[in-house]
Design a protein around this nucleic acid. Structure first.
Lengths: 337, 337
DNA sequence: CTGAAAGCGCTTACAG
DNA sequence: CTGAAAGCGCTTACAG
């Protein structure tokens, strides 16, 4: 059965498409359409399984009621907790969400943005990185509200919500040193995620504040393009260097998983053989025997804040003129330190 | 800057919208439009940042180039590995994906399906459960291709791809008994996911085949609506029942996580105090010291098969007339058994 | 080689 | 109380 249109319903009920449209949009009372007619139209439409053709509605009204969320990848904890929350925050206002992943590839990023512009989305929540500045500028030309996740461009003055990775790590470094660790290392990656920069700089800042040496050899960068096996090997070698770190901060979730795997291969125990902290929590760290210390990201809060900022940008919610939400990470010390 | 339309570009180049449309759709050569004109149009459109209004294109052509994927929840491993793969499989054909989560709520399910129908999506991949039969029927009326995930409705003859939960568990039960376990239990949930039924029936079938007693008290059903704490308590009590199971099969990922947490609270070790196997793998089980045995789901394969079936349904790929992909789960025995 | 015109399915002034 | 008509931005026969 083909989908019924307004015209069909009008024909079936012996009325005009104007009347049908009015009734189906709940404006029957307002337009003083007789109850009898209205009722019949509703019933007929329902039976025919009528749904308005959104393409036509949007074309006509110029509103797509669509929000685009652009993240680097959709596989991962961050996205999967973020998405439902944003969705629920926007649903009451009739907004729907389209997700798109850049996979950190410039070409894909271009496509994704082009695609969202074609859909005429009315606003964006996006996690940018330095490499996509040009694409972002293009997008900004449309003058649609944009909320940034995790990083800002200084010259842009866009609303942003992010975790304060820098402060979180600075504080962590202090705590670790207080616990007696002398040679704190950091594992980061060459993933273009801006937060990794904040975190690294927090690590350096923390050591500087404490007057501790900042050794290049204590920073290991995982090459994301390499095979998992190669990543594990490199990390393992690094961990076994002469005068090796006695505690390592893993700058992201997936790096921590890598770390656990390497420790296991080496047969090392935490915290005896090595102290360990990971940025971002997950089941593995929470339930690993003894527990692995983490800095918790307030992802849910980020999602809510982002949704709020966007709603403000859309002119739906009146907000304070607060443009930046910098949320604190929460250190959860468990058995691994 | 407002978005430029065909008309704008036509005005800017002193041509007609027909010509602009033709050129921008790559039909300049075919229509023998002069290179000079074509070039100018392309350049102008590019500078103006022109993107076609998809609302108009779709309304006109009747094609949305949109595929809907309906799952129960988007937070979770299954979805986050499924989605990117399906996306990549369909992208070469110009199809885009819209995700929607039912959260297992009938009302939400209705909304979601309505929403997708409004978008005029051209095909669906969906993970149904018995409770949504009515909504599914409504959707089927549109006569768009639908590929089912995880379960089929016997009277419907829709293409389906699923893991053979039943056989996987039957085999597992045999293996466990061979290992010497005498009192195998199962933890399932009241989540309406069809696979849970298959798995439970595999458990029962396995025991029957081996002539072992099938005790109701050895099956524990987690109440999804309850608080996490309540779930943990109930599971803990059940595990400590008199003549308690010596090995438990956790019917899903999230149930296994619950299991690990309870064992930890009880201070029990695997496999000494209790054997444990989980349906579906994840970092926690893989890297838990000693390892936790699992049945691996071939999620990537499922995604590919589903995408393929859909492509066939859309008439884009010629496939065999294979309507059912039942993929085997893979038992990975680790230290917990 | 290029343009005028119809029509996709809606919404919404405007008329009666 | 209800309908005829314009127009959203496209694509695509059809004409010239």
């Amino acid at each position: 059965m083909k989908k019924a249109s307004l015209k069909d319903i009008a024909a079936m009920t012996g009325t005009s498409i104007t009347t049908v449209s009015l009734v189906l949009n709940g404006r029957a009372k307002q337009m003083r359409i007789s109850d009898e007619v209205a009722e019949m139209i509703v019933k007929t439409a329902d039976e025919a399984g009528y749904v308005p053709n959104q393409m036509a509605v949007r074309l006509r009204t110029g509103k797509s009621k669509l929000i685009g969320i652009i993240v680097d990848t959709i596989s991962g904890n961050f996205f999967s907790t973020l998405a439902p929350i944003v969705e629920q925050s926007l649903a009451p206002y009739g907004y729907r969400i389209i997700y798109a992943a850049t996979e950190n590839e410039p070409e894909r990023t271009r496509q994704v943005i082009q695609m969202l512009r074609e859909q005429a989305v009315e606003g964006y929540i996006l996690m940018p990185h330095n490499g996509m500045r040009k694409e972002l500028d293009r997008l900004l030309q449309d003058e649609k509200p944009v909320v940034l996740l995790d990083m800002n461009f200084e010259d842009l003055e866009l609303p942003v919500v992010r975790v304060d990775g820098e402060q979180s790590i600075i504080k962590l470094v202090h705590q670790l040193v207080q616990k007696g660790y002398q040679r704190i290392g950091m594992v980061t990656s060459d993933h273009p995620h801006a937060q990794l920069q904040y975190r690294l700089s927090g690590y350096e800042q923390g050591l500087i504040e404490l007057g501790m040496p900042l050794k290049k050899t204590y920073i290991h960068t995982v090459a994301m393009k390499k095979s998992r096996e190669a990543q594990l090997k490199a990390l393992s070698t690094w961990l076994q260097q002469k005068n090796r770190p006695d505690c390592v901060i893993f700058s992201a979730n997936y790096l921590g998983v890598l770390g656990v795997e390497v420790l296991q291969r080496l047969g090392w125990n935490m915290p005896n053989d090595l102290g360990m902290v990971v940025f971002d929590d997950q089941d593995l760290f929470r339930l690993y025997p003894g527990g692995i210390s983490v800095i918790e990201q307030p992802t849910a809060q980020m999602a809510e804040s982002a949704a709020n900022l966007l709603l403000q940008g859309l002119g739906i919610k009146k907000g304070g003129r607060k443009l930046e939400y910098i949320l604190p990470g929460k250190t959860v010390l468990r058995g691994s330190t």
